[in-house]
Amino acid sequence: MKKIILCALLLIGSNAWGQIKKPTLMVVPADAWCANNGYMMSYEALGVQTDVPDYKQALQNDIDLLNVISKIGELMQERGFPLKDLASTIRSIEQSSAENEMLVGSSGLGIVETPYEKLLNRAKSDIIIELVYKINTEGPKRSVTYSMRGIDAYTNKQIAAATGTGAPSFSAEIPVLLEEAVLNNIDNFSSQLQSYFDDLQTNGREVAIEVLVFDNVEGTNLESEFDGEMLTDIIEKWVNDNTVEHRYSLTDATENKMLLEQVRIPLYRTNGMAMDTRAFTNELRKFLKAAPYNIECKLLTKGLGKAVIVIGNK
């Protein structure tokens, strides 16, 4: 009896641990759509004028956009994949920032937030669904050209897409044409998304790892040698030994920066818990901290798919 209970507990435990972290999806209007519809804002940084999409204005003013995003959300929810809502995320970030500024402890001191943490405080998701649509008119006929692109936010790879122009209509209203466009394209889009998830579950999650160097007193950088081997090579060997089928690609390697892309990390840790980029990169941090290297590192994560290790300090 005890054995049965133990087995049952182990099974429940393995199920609870054995879940891969679910990627988050968010629909955002593409930059081209924002530019065409006048929803851009400009700011000047270091003398350079930069235009960025103003999602808040777009969502507050364009009802068609809201309808399309809601329809995609509804259809994805039916498939068991609810989307992160852009409007709510923007609202939540603003509210959270305002609350944090007002929060004061009993000592009278406020919350500590580094400039880097402030910068990270933006709407983000693991997969961004970029949306563009355009109303075409030819005499009395109207049609909709529609495009939906799923982009992995960390590898910047297009993982799914559905595009097309609907049948021209004399009478149908724009919202109806847009709804038709969404309904006609969602199945192909989600089938490509399914292929991406299948690949992810077979070959491991694809992530990116960046190694940077703090200006440190010891002068340790990626060209520092340990037993005649450069730190870059030591890190690369560790990544090679710990990735699924040794899959990774070393894109940049200089004395102060190393960028590893297409790093296929296993889905589970040795103890059965789900693996994520942070856990994987934390193993690298522990490896570098241990003898004979004894290097102190700072570990930062950027969502589910990218981690940064900064060598030389914490």
Binding site: K22, R79, G80, F81, L193, Q194, F197, D198
Partner: peptide, 22 residues
């Protein structure tokens, strides 16, 4: 009725759900 068909085939284990494995 493709949505109902898809849902029933997913429940029968014939086709995979988009959220399978997560």
């Amino acid at each position: 009725a493709k949505e109902q068909l898809r849902k029933d085939l997913e429940a029968a284990g014939i086709i995979k759900k988009l959220s399978t494995g997560f």
